[in-house]
């Protein structure tokens, strides 16, 4: 199988973008106040930056990017075509939200954001279906979708928490610090939930390997360590500098875990036949 670094970057960056938008929408519904302590534009900009970086990685994967203009020509049959379509819908919705901020009556447009979240969810589903090929049994199961959703929660949650924490530390606008903490804690819970999904999948795959040899699997060490650090962060949530250090360490470990897991995923490619 050819080099997969660009695909590792593309999938992880878009999953982080989708996950952070889910966290933003969940934060809005969780505390229905007038955006207290929620730097919406910062979150949207971070998510859009991840999307653009993901698109650049996807273009790097193509040998002939100019023919990418035809990439949505097979929406009827190809999940890759659908994935490419929803990549653009998701990024387009984020760009629309940011561009129209000055002319919108409210900073938080729940309808467009819901659209972006939905496009993100469909994107993740399409992304998993791209890999669920009937000729590649090692990918052709529901664990692929679960793994991608887990990655979105881990990366999106940790990114949301980092952006929120950094904005809260640097902001002088007098945001409600208590409410901001609730957002961060909710995002951390999302990241921990995603980690638990990935750990469960990792353990299941190792158990399955004993019965039927799989080409590759991984120990969920990274995710376990990340979860421990996230819990420490939640316990120390009152000491600003310590919590930022704990959060940053958790982020490094979780992102490292995601990268190693995704590389293992691509290495597990094993096609039937010749």
């Amino acid at each position: 199988m050819h080099s997969h670094w660009s695909l590792v970057a593309f999938t992880l960056l878009f999953q982080a973008s989708v996950g952070s938008i889910w966290c933003l929408l969940a934060a809005h519904f969780m505390i229905n106040t007038a955006n207290t302590g929620l730097p919406v534009i910062s979150h949207l900009t971070a998510a859009l930056a991840l999307s653009f970086a993901g698109m650049a990685a996807a273009l790097a994967h193509l040998s002939n990017p100019r023919a990418g203009l035809f990439a949505i020509a097979n929406l009827r049959h190809s999940w890759l075509s659908r994935e490419i379509f929803f990549v653009h819908v998701h990024a387009g919705a984020l760009a629309l939200l940011i561009i129209t901020t000055p002319i919108r009556p409210k900073e938080f447009d729940v309808f467009v954001l819901s659209g972006a979240s939905l496009a993100g969810a469909i994107l993740l589903y399409s992304m998993s279906r791209v890999y669920q090929l009937k000729t590649v049994p090692s990918w052709n199961h529901s664990g692929t979708l679960l793994s991608f959703v887990g990655s979105a929660l881990v990366l999106g949650g940790i990114q949301f928490a980092l952006v929120q924490t950094i904005c809260a530390m640097t902001s002088s606008t007098g945001h409600d610090a208590v409410t901001a903490d609730i957002y961060v804690q909710a995002a951390i819970i999302a990241a921990v939930s995603g980690s638990l999904i990935k750990m469960t999948l990792g353990l299941y795959q190792r158990f399955k390997k004993k019965r039927r040899p799989a080409k590759s699997s991984h120990w969920p060490v990274f995710h376990g360590s990340g979860v421990i650090l996230c819990v420490i962060f939640l316990l120390l949530a009152k000491a600003a500098l310590v919590e930022l250090i704990a959060l940053s360490l958790a982020a490094i470990i979780l992102v490292g875990g995601e990268i190693s897991h995704r590389i293992a995923f691509y290495h597990s490619y094993d096609r039937v036949g010749l």
């Binding site: 035809f70 990439a71 049959h77």
Partner: peptide
């Protein structure tokens, strides 16, 4: 043919 089904560009 699975190749024609999965090809996004219909190439």
């Amino acid at each position: 043919p699975i190749c024609t089904q999965v090809c996004p560009t219909t190439a």
